[in-house]
Amino acid sequence: MMKKLTTISCVLLLLSACSGKPQIQTYHAKDDKQEIETFKNAFKDSENLDEASGVFFDHQLVVSLQVKPFSKLRKEKITKSFEKEMKTLFPDHEVFVSSDLKITWELNKIIEKKPNEDELKKDLDEIQSLAKEET
């Protein structure tokens, strides 16, 4: 009986963890509520994502995505489709989308720290140069 219960709860936990909606985190240097809302709506119903983070700063938008394990094979395609969507949603922003774990970690650090503008610019430049590194 106990064993059965444990198995069922394990399966339920696994399923609930897998089918959850993506966690969305944002940070806006000027705290534009409307832009944050548009960003959140774009990712809200996505079934392929575990996590989406975005940082807005001076007509610059840096987005990092974490694709669900079962969709990892289509990671590049999913990233590209979201990049396209972001570019149409925020035409006056310079959009940068990445699905790299390191970029997600760095962006989450920024979102937690909420730095001032000078630091933010430095951090975002660093992140973009990291992503361009080929070696």
């Binding site: 790299d100 774990l101 390191k102 970029i103 970690w105 660093e126 990291l130 992503a131 590194e133 080929e134 070696t135």
Partner: peptide, 14 residues
């Protein structure tokens, strides 16, 4: 390597 050094998912394999 990704956490403590500036390596990304792609470059950390080396």
């Amino acid at each position: 390597y990704m956490y403590f050094f500036p390596f990304t998912e792609r470059t950390s394999s080396n």
